[in-house]
Design a binder for these strands. Structure first.
Lengths: 206, 206
DNA sequence: GAGGCAAAACGGAACGGCAAGTATTAAATA
DNA sequence: TATTTAATACTTGCCGTTCCGTTTTGCCTC
């Protein structure tokens, strides 16, 4: 069986072109990722331990350490498909409509367990530079780029003010959402999700 | 000597009206807080351990556990004076001016070590409901109230739009700042600090 | 007032538990 | 047979807690 794993930024899949020796066990890999997903329904990323994953997966700890640098990398890979949203810019929309749709999708995705995981990862990143980089590379950067592009389009079309540079505009758009996510109280509830896009567009408008 | 400790929201100072028995050692208390401050210059809140504090303070672990529920409470008390900014609303300012000044002060305060500590605390809070409550009660709530009041004033005076409720407006104002804080990349640098208040006021304006 | 007693806090030591990370040995393939 | 992976077992370190003997206070009795 060919190794069909998508080139994820975390695990060492795809490296080393099948030279010799015992091949990596795909069964173990899947068991690890599955165990991680199941454990994450009851615990936070912080409380998750490599040992617990190994035990639940029926696998040695060394196997995990061999392929992932830390538990965050395992979590990222375990939830990669669910968290990787395809931020396509639809064709015939105005930048404002496009932005509203993107915000809507982001907030819907951050509800429930996924949001908790993202908040946990951002929290973990605060005490580990490597984790921060992993998180940015895997999750945050692509989001920022997508929103940044939409904002640029809006600035070209004259809908959005040209006064702010893109980076700062992205911070202004995403900041409140993640603030809400981490405050937990209230969170990204219906009311907020309904009102926020309007406010965000107002904030950017010329 | 009378117990002059300001009534801080974390440690158990002031409770129990001096009935009998050996009184709490002020020397130990100060040694613990001082050791915490010194350790925090080199480590994150996450990597800080009660054991290390006790060792550095020349104190038994028991003494710490007796008076503080967890290490976050110790950190909060150790940095209480530095982090407690007096958010007075000056008299003859327009709400916009007032808001700009408040933002300026907040961002200045979140630069350097204090900002790192706040980010760490918010991170710790993500995996512990008690910590989140401590953080809100000690730090976040008072900030939100102060900004909320200013925004309300601005809405009354007609400078700010009445479309958004106060809670959401506060999230919109503070979100980007904390986003910036936790991203670390760039952070609350000069450029951001200079531009952001203008943008924030624009976002709120009617 | 002097002395003794109860109450509370102190530092030190040790415990069991848990997780991180690391040899070492066994297993599977070219 | 060489090479690479996997699992077992181990060491290390911290945590949260519990004991213990000691110290410092208030209060009561004489």
């Amino acid at each position: 069986m060919q190794n069909q794993t998508a080139s994820l930024p975390v695990s060492d899949t795809e490296s080393s072109a099948r030279s010799a020796g015992r091949p990596r066990s795909e069964a173990s890999r899947l068991a690890i990722l599955d165990a991680t997903r199941r454990l994450m329904t009851h615990t936070s990323v912080r409380d998750l331990s490599i040992e617990a994953i190994a035990k639940k997966a029926g696998v040695g700890k060394t196997t995990i350490y061999r392929w992932w640098p830390n538990k965050v990398a395992v979590v990222i890979e375990a939830f990669a498909e669910q968290l990787d949203m395809h931020m396509l810019t639809a064709g015939n929309e105005t930048p404002s409509e496009n932005l509203a749709r993107q915000l809507d999708r982001l907030m819907r995705q951050l509800r429930g367990r996924n949001g908790k995981i993202i908040a946990d990862l951002l929290a973990e990143a605060q005490s580990d530079a490597k984790v921060l980089e992993q998180f940015n590379q895997f999750y945050m950067q692509s989001r920022r780029n997508a929103f940044g592009q939409t904002i640029l389009n809006g600035q070209k079309s004259g809908e959005f003010s040209e006064a702010l540079n893109t980076e700062m505009a992205v911070d202004m758009i995403l900041g409140p959402i993640f603030m809400r996510l981490m405050r937990q109280e209230a969170g990204l509830d219906e009311a907020f999700a309904a009102e926020y896009p309007v406010m965000a567009i107002h904030a950017l408008s010329a």
